[in-house]
Design a protein around this nucleic acid. Sequence first.
RNA 1: GGGGGGAUUCCAGAGCGGUCAAAUGGGGCAGACUGUAAAUCUGUUGGCUAAGCCUUCGGAGGUUCGAAUCCUUCUCCCCCCA
Length: 424
Amino acid sequence: MSFIEELKWRGMLHDITPGTEKLLKEDFVSAYVGIDPTADSLHIGHLVSIMMLKHFQVAGHKPLPLIGGATGMIGDPSGKSQERTLLSEEVLRHNEKAIHKQLIKFLDFDSVKNKAEIVNNYDWMKDFSFLQFLREIGKKISINYMISKDSVKSRLETGLSFTEFSYQLIQAYDFLHLYQNKNCKLQMGGSDQWGNITTGIELIRRTTGNEAYAVTCPLITKADGGKFGKTEQGNIWLDSRYTSPYNFYQFWLNCSDKDVERYIKIFTLMPREEIENLIKEHCKEPHLRKLQKVLAKDITIRVHGEEEYNLAVEASGILFGKGTTEMLLKLPEDVLLSLMEGVPKHTISKSSIENKISIIDFLTEETGVLPSKSEARRALKEGSISINKKKENESKYVSVDDLINSRYIIVQRGKKKYFLVIAE
RNA sequence: GGGGGGAUUCCAGAGCGGUCAAAUGGGGCAGACUGUAAAUCUGUUGGCUAAGCCUUCGGAGGUUCGAAUCCUUCUCCCCCCA
């Protein structure tokens, strides 16, 4: 199966320039995807374009992940309704390093024939003077052309700084630079990058007279219309400091049936036949949630490793399975703590519960698990509060007898929301 | 510049002197069902020392026993005419 066919059946092809398929068939090609270092970790949204590069490499071509050390200093207006604040150079350099480390996990950097190579546009932009840039590059692209791009057009009403306006030209130059220095003829990215990519193609055409190509993938959506990759707590990051492996695993496990079929095609490398069989099985026995489990396993192992995956599964079993108070009481402290990783923690002084206190005070004043006493009363009336896995009502008093390992109390609001209260 | 309409609790949007912590819908949260899914149904959705009290209906004043509702003024938004 060709690279393009692969993308097609996986639902990863949104737009493609004419002739791309022919080029890939006849030549050994390099392609790049740009990632701006706006944070010191990638999130799962980035994973889509990384998977494009991965498939590209599997198809025998050479992937060039580009870290936007320069473009990150400018800010891409694509898909943004507002001007953004600039990151300091120090932060950017730090972010670049972190992202570099993460990228290494996903692509093959050792292959003799087509090893991946990370490039950073800061390397070629940092010594390119403003005047030189205007004379060499700016002269080739007209304002009219740049303004006609959606990313710019949509911002003309609300305002757009010259800085962000310039972004597409810098990205276009990246493409030209890679074309000339790395023989890179293809740029890939999310569909929101189409405008920027075609500006690059135009620049290459005007500079060299040659053709360059683009492939974009659709924006990943959720069936319920929400933003992909976001939870109440924010983005799902690849870095375990920001999203614990447990939460990462849970995110995939919680995908709805509608979404999971699309996601497993995008985020795993599993072959078509295997995925189609899985989907069939899933339809037969949806309650087993096989697809979600396979997807969560595959991607958690690739991002965090097998050991972290096993811990996440184990934790899920205890928290969502038929876990009882007795089970919790038996857990060693370190297991309990790793289980509670990524769960909001609240501290309380041990002395405050030496005498019994009402559960309402415990939930609000003492720990801040719930924001007001009204809400606490309501929750208790609804039967949504559990202490150490046991449902409680308003008549409950909390005391040192409730402490697990004489230090912890596990509070649940509803089925899924956990809080760990630590008595000190 | 002239004329008109509007600002209500997370959002949309009723209310137009007491029965208003404010209809209804959406969203949120929870319960039931289930599969940690979806759909559906139910409850709930300002705070507190809770059959009571306090703070809320763009801001500031005023009328009144009593104001989200009436008056004055300010701020902001929308529409129409020039």
